[in-house]
Design a protein around this nucleic acid. Structure first.
Lengths: 140, 140
DNA sequence: CTTGACCTTCACATCAATGTGAAGGTTTCA
DNA sequence: TGAAACCTTCACATTGATGTGAAGGTCAAG
């Protein structure tokens, strides 16, 4: 497929697909006319990249961890230098730290939402100033 | 404490502490001479902000979720507008998505590292070109 | 052959987070 | 009093991830 289709299927602007390529995250084949040519595997790959970017990893790091994630291993163990392994372990730790932080805060939001729900179920009205809407019209 | 101590205790440049204040994430008291004055609670607060920033949340969002996270509730339930609750739920979902992505990729890194370990334990030498170092000197 | 929908590269703009430094006030200590 | 180590605001620079548009090549359909 060409860049337009990959763009649609991943919800990613063409501009960014070219940017990811420039950063070494994906490498597209070229058709005779110079157009980029992608196969199916790029859909997941791009979604993975976007997820990691959204989770706070910079392209420089994503570039390093992506090759280890291929199902049929494209990177062979003998190629793993000690400092590359150290980098991977370090990033693993950072990711765990992010997960902890996100989990803790997400759960705290959940607790707050639950408390609000309790409060409202206890028969309290919402603030009248903040144009409010009944949570459930209760299907008359 | 003043900004220098908070900076040291949180590992955060003074510049950024002022930036977070400018963005409405923290509000410092002022001493008579204009110096910012922080109490103990700011240490955790700043670390929390940094964690969320590192996990990919922008200050604009952090500002919205922070007030819900205080232990003695500083935000009262009646103040919660429906659209604010919707925002919270939406961010909760985004955080869960980030957690899923990070977890999946972190575990995949783990699998790769385990595979490398297996490979090396199986008696294979690392690439001789990449100046390598024995994983464990094995305490002679 | 022309039009429209693709594609290419190049380049400049923006936004948020952060770095850095200038110019100047305050506090502390010798 | 003067130097050192704080603090203030203001402002410009940088970096990474993006937006946007220009100038032009390709290709399928009318």
């Amino acid at each position: 497929m060409r860049i337009g289709e990959l763009s649609e299927r991943t919800g990613t602007p063409r501009r960014l697909l070219r940017y990811y390529e420039e950063q070494g995250l994906i490498a597209a084949d070229r058709a005779a006319n110079g157009y980029r040519e992608y196969d199916e595997r790029f859909v997941d790959r791009v979604l993975q990249i976007r997820g990691l970017l959204d989770a706070g990893l910079p392209t420089r790091i994503i570039k390093q961890i992506l090759p280890c994630l291929d199902k049929p291993r494209t990177i062979y163990f003998p190629d793993a230098t000690p400092q590359m392994l150290a980098t991977l372990r370090h990033e693993q730790d950072r990711m765990s730290e992010r997960i902890r932080c996100l989990t803790r805060n997400r759960d705290a939001i959940g607790e707050y939402l639950d408390a609000v729900l309790d409060y409202q179920h206890a028969g309290n009205k919402e603030t009248p100033d903040h144009h409010s809407r009944p949570p459930e019209p209760a299907a008359d």
